[in-house]
């Protein structure tokens, strides 16, 4: 086959979602954000809800998520996305309202907003990228940074005497009566990506079916911050992050549990 044959529309075997535009992403090679963005785009298109979706971007690496997905967005102040989402959902209950937040945003500066939004139970979705580090500001310690893990602000490794313990915030959120679906996923293998996509779909369906808060944590790599190659970062995540943040559903009150 010539190149001309290969690029004929009838020979198309894959295409990126329409709402994912051609703007080059600012994410580092190997970063998990791009994959998660694509999953969100795919699910929104498959559900046919692009016109009814309002996303909220955080402060952190994903601050510019609004540049890559052609949906309507609001850009939050650091940590405040869940409060905004609650208000938007109350004022526009038929919209699919989701936040996209990192660990510093959701589990440090925005802890109060996160917990109260999850406790109130408005049907919003929280996509939570947990890579145990502040990527955007240059690799400082996050609330989810593992014990002994080195960052710019714990250069000798996280010392729990000095910095406290890694915050398993998703475990906390599952205890709240307002959450209906709390799950922890990853996107480091093809199989994991498929599972993560199912979780996002379920969370978005809960959103439109007014079932309560759905939290999808994606345990992710930050190879730049971790100072590892993308491949090594995946290995490191499996060996170190997964034992602290085990994958699977933590809570599902919607009636059809997916993974354990």
């Amino acid at each position: 086959m010539t190149i001309e044959d290969i690029i004929k529309p009838e020979n198309l075997v894959y295409k990126k979602p329409d709402i994912m535009n051609d703007r080059p992403m600012h994410y580092c090679p190997g970063c998990s954000h791009g994959v998660v963005h694509k999953l969100i785009a795919e699910v929104l298109e498959e559900m046919g809800v692009v016109e009814d979706t309002i996303g909220i971007t955080p402060v952190g690496c994903a601050v510019f998520a609004y540049n890559y997905l052609d949906i309507d967005w609001e850009e939050a102040a650091h940590g405040r996305a869940p409060a905004m989402a609650v208000a938007i959902k109350r004022l526009r209950p038929n919209k699919l309202v989701f936040t996209y937040q990192g660990d510093g945003d959701l589990a440090a500066i925005g802890t109060a907003e996160t917990i109260h939004a999850c406790n109130r139970g408005d049907s919003i979705t929280i996509i939570f990228i947990n890579n145990g580090i502040y990527g955007m500001t240059g690799g400082q310690m996050a609330p989810t940074t593992l014990e002994g893990m080195k960052t710019a602000t714990c250069p000798y490794g996280r010392n729990t005497k000095l910095n406290g313990y890694p915050l398993k915030i998703t475990n906390l959120l599952k205890e709240l009566d307002g959450t209906c679906y709390v799950t922890r996923q990853s996107v480091h293998t093809a199989a994991a990506v498929r599972k993560a996509k199912k979780a996002i779909r379920k969370a978005f369906e809960n959103n439109l079916n007014q079932k309560g808060v759905s939290v999808v944590e994606i345990v992710s790599t930050c190879n730049s911050g971790w100072k590892l190659t993308p491949e090594k970062a995946n290995e490191w995540m499996e060996q170190n992050m997964f034992p602290a943040y085990p994958l699977g559903d933590l809570k599902d009150t919607t009636g059809d549990s997916q993974t354990k």
């Binding site: 309002i54 909220i56 609001e74 939050a76 102040a77 405040r80 409060a83 905004m84 989402a85 609650v86 208000a87 938007i88 109350r90 004022l91 526009r92 109060a112 907003e113 109260h116």
Partner: peptide, 13 residues
Amino acid sequence: IAAINMVYGGAGT
């Protein structure tokens, strides 16, 4: 803080 950000979210729509 949450209240003003709720206002921000709502006003944005």
